[in-house]
Simulated assay, not measured.
Amino acid sequence: MSPILDIDLLRSFAVVAETGALSRAAERVGRSQAALSMQMKRLESLIDQPLLTRTGRGVLLTVQGERLLVHARRILVSHDDALAELSGRSLTGSLRFGCPDDYAQAFLPALLRGFAQHHPAAAIEVVCAATPRLVERHDRGGLDLALISMPLAAEREILRREDLVWVVARDGPSHWPDPLPLALGDPDTLDHQAALAALDRAHQAYRLAYASGSLSGLLAVVRSGQAVAVLTRSAVPSDLRIQSRTSGLPSLPQIGLTIRLDAQRASPLTRAFAAHLRAVLPVL
């Protein structure tokens, strides 16, 4: 008989993956750390694969654990949605959700449409801004949860990886003046910091020709052909061009997407939307 993946085991595993520590996960699921550890051993036995690596600072997912997490999130969302629909417990209420400007057009329509299919009475107020502004607003209590960008080196749950790319007007010049004119976001944003760090490492001269905290402002500058910008690959509009590696510009790093959420204070609606993000965002 084939092994059966128990919903309770998958739910506990997803919380362990999110928190990165058995102690914090045990508090979240209302179990002792020893009981939660036994659950993880049982799940590993069912899968017949190691899922977690214990470290001095918590736990990390193995390759098999990362693969299982993708399936676990989908299963949990489908399970919870089925229960809500069949029992008539479609969630109501409102939540305030922060989303970085560059992901709004790429991801928001699918995220909101999918959630509304199961919770049509829920109201979601969307706030679009750069990640540092979203973090500030969340910390002040102005957002229930936020999707934010972060360096991959940060020790937090990463839902999706995104390439940073150099972007120019589709009919823009093939050779840029020296120093390179840049159009960048606020100094505390990852695109700004990554661009300057890459150019400094390459000893390439540049000047900050345009700066804007608004994505639409940066896109307007790039469309004018007056400067080069840095965006995430998924946010590049079709009328702009990504500079190839042969352009002479230095390579840029990947960044990660994660959720900022106060799990202890989150409402059922907020937790449901966070679970929806975790299940859907990695496969968009």
Rank of each mutant, 00 (worst) to 15 (best):
Thr53Asp: 11
Cys128Asp: 05
Pro173Met: 07
Asp81Met: 05
Ser224Trp: 08
Leu10Pro: 00
Val280Ala: 12
Ser94Gly: 12
Ala123Ile: 11
Leu95Phe: 03
Val15Trp: 10
Arg28Cys: 12
Arg28Met: 13
Leu112Ile: 06
Arg57Trp: 14
Asp178Leu: 11
Leu182Met: 10
His71Asp: 14
His192Arg: 05
Ala275Thr: 02
Leu281Met: 13
Thr55Gln: 14
Leu36Met: 13
Leu284Gln: 12
Ile75Phe: 06
Leu252Met: 09
Asp102Pro: 01
Thr232Leu: 12
Arg223Ala: 14
Leu277Arg: 00
Ala129Asp: 15
Ser149Asp: 05
Leu257Glu: 05
Asp101Pro: 02
Leu95His: 02
Gly93Ser: 07
Ala153Ile: 09
Glu27Leu: 13
Val236Met: 12
Ala110Asn: 09
Phe273Tyr: 14
Ile158Cys: 10
Ser214Ile: 08
Leu52Met: 06
Gly93Val: 05
Asp191Thr: 15
Leu36Phe: 06
Ala263His: 13
Arg207Gly: 10
Leu61Gln: 09
Asp191Phe: 00
Arg260Leu: 14
Asp102Val: 12
Arg265Cys: 09
Ala266Ser: 11
Ile255Glu: 00
Asp144Asn: 08
Phe107Arg: 05
Ser224Pro: 11
Ala220Phe: 06
Ala263Trp: 13
Ala110Glu: 15
Arg137Cys: 08
Pro181Trp: 10
